[in-house]
Structures are given as C-alpha cells and as structure tokens.
Simulated assay, not measured.
Amino acid sequence: MEQLNNAFTLFLSLLVEAIPFLLLGVLLSSVLLICIDERWLTAHLPKNPVLGAFAGSCIGFLFPVCECGNVPVARRLIMQGVPMPVAIGFLIAAPTVNPIVIWSTWIAFHDRPEIVILRVVFSLTIATVVGCIFSLQTDLQPILQPAMALSTLRSQPKIPTGNSLLDGGDFILGTAGMAPKRMTQDLIQPPKRSLQANVNLVLDNVVQELRELGGVLVLGSAVAAAIQTLTPRELIVSLGEGPVISIVVMMILAGSISICSTVDAFFALSFAATFTSGSILAFLVFGPMFDLKSIGLMLSIFTPKAIFYLFAIATQLTFLLTLFVNFHVS
C-alpha cells in the first residue's frame, strides 16, 4: 500500500511540473499558425549542405514544435522546395532545439547545466551530420514517397498542403502519402483569414494537441512513477550504473514511451539519481528523434528504407556521443 501511495505521489508531482510547459508549448505552436511567413523563410535558407543542415536544425527557434508537429512542417518545407539537408536538420533537431524545450530542461536540471547544454549541442550535431549525409543523395526519388518526389520536381511556386507550415498532422496522415485533393493552383497563395477565423484555428489546434499530447503525458508519468516505485531499487541501480547498459536502457525507454519533448525532462529527472549522465542525455536526445507516434506521418514523406537509415544513423551517433560523456565527462 505504501508503494502505491509513493507511486501516486510521484505521478502527481510529475504532472504538476510538466503540465504548465505542455500548455505553453501547445499555445505557442498554435499561435504560430497565423504568425509565420514561410515564403520569406524558405527564400533565405542557405543552399550549402553543411550550413543548410545547421540552419534547418536551428529553425526550431522559430517553430517551437515538439515531435508531434515537426513532421508536417518538414513535409511542407520539402514541398516548398527547400534543400533536403535543411528539412532533415529541422526534422531531427526541432523537437529539442527550441526555446520551450530548452527552458523546461533548465527548470528540471537547473543544478546540472551541463545536461541542458549538451542536450542542445548533441541534437544540433546529430541533426547536422544526418542532414549532410542525406545531402549526398542527389536523386530524391529513392528516398521520398512518389507524391512527395513529384512535388519536388514541379516548377516554383511549390504547391503547399495547407495554409501554414504548422498544419496539423492528422490531415497529412489521413492522406497516406497521396497528394491531397485540395492541392490546386488556387491554394498556392493561402487566402487571408478573418480575426474570428484565426482565433478558431488557434483554439481548434490547442484542443487537438492537448487531446493528443495530454494522454501521452499522463501515460509517461504513470510509467515513470511505476518504474521508480515498483521496480526493485537494486535492479535500477545495477542498470543505471553501467556506462553502456544504462544508455541502451534509456534509449529503449525513450523510444517506447515517446513522451513529448516539451516535458520529457521531468520524466528523465526521476531517473537522474540512479542513472548515468550519459544515459539521461541519451533519453533526452534520442527520444524526440525516435517517436512512435510520428512514424506514420514520416511514411507520408519518406520511404521505409530512408526512415530506417535516418534512425540507424541517429541511433549510432546518440550512443557514441553519450558513451563519451559517461567515460570522459561524468
């Protein structure tokens, strides 16, 4: 009975800490639906593969979306004709390299600033490297779904999938990778919306994202509380102290839980006392990159083979960087 009480207390504490950041992230990303001019952005992105991948990795500061919203934005970037390194860099780094996630990570690990700094540095590094590797693929047809490959070959202006880069993922997922019916010349330039229409758009997006992300947050908090209180402490300590096994365990946990990057720092904080610094970083860096919820959306952009290579490279880089932390920094 005491274990259940402890688990429930930890569960509530995780929710109380995380919910404000979830609300802030959802609200800000929804407001950006009506504030960002993506045409200006795509016109000023660098064409150099390295600079493009790095710039794409930093676009998260303009689009503070978590891994639930980065795929639709990356899809739109590709259809607007931006270089592939830019889109790949954004796809991988945006859920981590944005002000809301950095702030929430700082609140959770304010006494360990190296966790906050290395999370950003590792995410930027991995996103830039993967973007540069994918830039070597000059023919995009083998890595893109047919509809996406066709859109990249069309003359400018590229036909968008909606009125904003931050269109919700449900519409795209529902198309199953096929060209949406509303892709017509009339929608190349989105119509101006009234104030009431903008307000409705923001409110609808807030409700949708809270419904999707709130459930994941509750589930993730429950899992973290259960693991911490019901698993024998000796087992947790033995797994957490190993420089290699601790990283593997936390990467598997990150991929299976798929908790939103806006609040995953509070989840990781519950393991900070028993797991190595490298494994905590592995969870914080790898989790936003490998999200089970977004794989269906990614299949609307890339072929399964391309997704496999993308995750394989990101997994190896995450493991090597965090292993270096365990052996040389911790």
Rank of each mutant, 00 (worst) to 15 (best):
A53D: 12
T138K: 05
G25C: 04
P113F: 12
G69W: 03
F109N: 00
N48G: 08
T9L: 14
I100F: 02
K47E: 11
I227P: 00
I59W: 02
I259L: 10
C260V: 09
N198I: 06
I115T: 06
E67R: 06
Q145Y: 05
P85W: 12
L323S: 10
V263K: 01
L150G: 09
L153W: 00
P85F: 13
L10Y: 06
A53G: 08
Y309I: 12
N198A: 10
G255I: 03
R39D: 10
F308T: 14
C58S: 07
F63R: 07
I117S: 08
T274N: 14
I117A: 14
S277Y: 07
F327E: 13
Q141Y: 03
G56V: 11
S238E: 15
P113G: 07
A268T: 03
T125E: 04
S57H: 03
S104A: 09
T322F: 08
L297F: 02
S194F: 11
V216H: 04
M289Q: 04
E234A: 10
V16R: 11
F319E: 01
P304M: 09
A43Q: 04
S270M: 13
A312V: 06
L91I: 08
Q185I: 15
S270F: 09
M250Q: 00
R233L: 13
G240N: 02
W103H: 06
D264E: 06
V263S: 03
L27D: 03
S261L: 07
A226V: 11
I301V: 13
E17Q: 12
T128M: 15
I259H: 02
G296H: 04
I115S: 01
T105C: 08
L321Q: 04
I92E: 02
A147M: 09
H44F: 12
P157R: 14
E67Q: 11
C68P: 07
D204A: 08
L284V: 01
D186H: 10
V50L: 12
L323N: 08
G52K: 06
L320V: 15
N326M: 04
G169K: 02
V65R: 12
F308M: 12
P64R: 13
D37G: 08
V206N: 09
F311L: 15
V120S: 03
L15V: 09
F271Q: 10
P288S: 07
I313N: 01
V86Q: 06
G177V: 07
G89I: 02
M251Y: 00
I280G: 01
G255A: 05
P304F: 09
K181Q: 14
E114T: 14
G174Q: 08
I188E: 02
L269I: 07
F21W: 03
F109P: 00
S261F: 05
A272E: 05
A254G: 15
P157F: 11
V206Q: 07
V16F: 08
F54L: 15
I19G: 07
L12N: 14
Q141E: 12
E114W: 10
V65G: 11
G169V: 13
K305E: 14
N198Q: 15
L320C: 12
K305Q: 13
F324K: 02
I172D: 04
D139M: 03
L166N: 07
F122P: 00
F21R: 00
G25A: 05
